[in-house]
Amino acid sequence: MSVNSSRVALFACCLVLGGCPQEGVPGRQSGRLEGQVVGSGSPRGDAYVFLFAPGEGPPKGPATPRSVTAVPELRRSAGDSRFLFAELVPGPYRLWGFLDVNGDVDLSVDVLAQPGAGDSVSEAGVEVEVPAGSFVERELMLTRRMHHGPPAFRVTGEGTDGGVVTVPDSPLALTSLNVEADGLGLLRGEEARFFVRLRDADGDGSADDLNGDGVPELFPQFFLRFVPRPGQAVPLQTDGGASQVIVPLVINPVPFVTLLQGDVTREASATSVQLFVIPVALAGVTPLASIPVGEYQLWALSAEGAFWYVPNALGSRDSEALRSQALRFQIVRGGSPDGGNPAR
């Protein structure tokens, strides 16, 4: 299984026209980036514009932006779609954005800080170099319409009442999870459902079977992402940064085989899916000798690049309806919470 996602999405610094201030470099003049948001026929909704590091950010995968700004609906409806990033540290950036038609974006919560059903997004990001002491002007085209919203979910069934789901690290254990699509009353534009389709990452028209087990892979992709605590080591990348360690999960394909008929252009919808844990840990695409014990997040990634994960910041809100978003996941040694496992 290949997962083209690292860390979390669109944390926002501010919503003012000038974007998020960045700390300047002593003795070096700042730069400026300005332009117009164009391409959407609807004046409805606020437009959000992001600056990422070169090569990062949607649609390539979730990433943390360097700066963010907004073009409010009030200004857009008056014919003013300007955006401006002032006082930028000079250097290369990647410009990307979307139009929040449904008004359900909340930039204080990363799982809600992304486009949803009916929103317009940049087809691809714009690579731009911001020189010192000068400004660059770019247009941002919002031409691609999102068909579906983020794959929001909650985990149901046995083992969820205590607030922690434990998963044994044993390769002999068969662990399954049941997840139910749930917009939590926060996502608009469509009924909360999983939109299941065959994975075709290389665009050759044939379904992917990366692990060679004879079963085609499906979107949404699900995986457990390791959240190491202090003292828990993870493999390093070539640049010295920590690798993302995941444990893959697969959707039970039986309910969808007949509906999809091997056609990568078809799509089936479901209110719930059954997941099976694959007992192997991957650092990137490299299998590890053993699965790290400890805390994990359960992630879902849609075919359009939208994501959801649990536990998330919504689970800390004082709402009974959002308690499902606080559910924790722990992989334990040999199936025993006390068998050499980190303290909770």
Score class of each variant (00 low, 15 high):
144 R>H: 05
308 W>R: 02
275 L>K: 09
271 T>D: 13
269 S>M: 15
247 V>Y: 05
185 G>H: 12
190 E>G: 05
326 A>Y: 06
288 L>R: 08
158 E>M: 05
70 A>N: 03
33 L>P: 01
308 W>Q: 02
297 Q>L: 13
220 P>Y: 02
119 D>C: 09
305 G>V: 08
88 L>A: 06
120 S>I: 00
162 G>S: 13
287 P>W: 08
161 D>Y: 02
203 G>I: 04
116 G>Y: 02
93 Y>Q: 07
319 S>M: 11
144 R>D: 04
61 G>S: 02
171 P>V: 11
54 P>E: 11
153 F>C: 04
19 G>M: 06
159 G>E: 08
134 S>H: 03
69 T>Y: 06
28 R>S: 02
133 G>S: 04
198 L>W: 13
62 P>A: 10
311 P>H: 12
153 F>G: 01
117 A>F: 05
184 L>A: 15
141 M>T: 03
306 A>L: 10
6 S>N: 14
314 L>I: 13
159 G>V: 08
297 Q>T: 14
134 S>N: 09
3 V>D: 01
291 I>T: 07
259 L>Y: 00
107 L>M: 12
63 A>Q: 05
300 A>D: 01
11 F>C: 01
24 G>Y: 00
154 R>T: 13
216 P>M: 07
31 G>D: 12
112 L>K: 04
124 A>L: 07
29 Q>N: 07
44 R>T: 13
86 A>W: 00
297 Q>I: 00
335 G>Y: 14
38 V>T: 15
14 C>I: 08
106 D>K: 10
211 N>R: 10
289 A>V: 04
241 G>R: 15
247 V>W: 01
287 P>N: 10
341 N>H: 10
50 F>Y: 15
309 Y>L: 14
28 R>T: 12
151 P>W: 01
143 T>C: 03
314 L>N: 11
18 G>L: 10
283 A>R: 12
131 P>R: 00
112 L>F: 02
137 E>S: 11
217 E>Q: 12
292 P>W: 01
15 L>T: 11
41 G>F: 12
206 S>C: 07
323 R>H: 02
149 G>M: 02
342 P>Y: 05
312 N>D: 12
66 R>F: 05
90 P>M: 01
6 S>W: 13
43 P>Y: 14
101 V>C: 03
77 S>H: 02
334 G>H: 13
147 H>Q: 11
203 G>A: 11
250 V>N: 00
119 D>P: 00
205 G>I: 08
63 A>S: 14
195 F>D: 05
320 E>G: 01
